[in-house]
Amino acid sequence: MSKAAAGPMAEMEGVVTVVQEGRFQLTDLGGVSHNFMLSRFALAETEQLPALQNAQSRVRVKYSQADKLIAYLAHRIDLLDVA
């Protein structure tokens, strides 16, 4: 797990295991699942998420804590398993 220290742009690595609309669950390398929501300014689109889940790709997510939600706000998703 590469969960960085708390800050405006922390990072986490893992596998996208559940996708619903713009929300997804990232299971980190320690097996713990976290809820994410795509930010309106994210460098990714809603329709790109199911492909990540289907491929079970390893990704790195840059995120911040969502205000008044038990979820993180994803700002950027980078693929780590690019062949």
């Binding site: 996708v19 619903q20 929300r23 997804f24 929501m37 969502a66 008044k68 939600l69 038990i70």
Partner: peptide
């Protein structure tokens, strides 16, 4: 649970 909706209005 099914829709992966976060808890709000904590």
């Amino acid at each position: 649970e099914w829709n992966n909706l976060p808890a709000d209005d904590i």
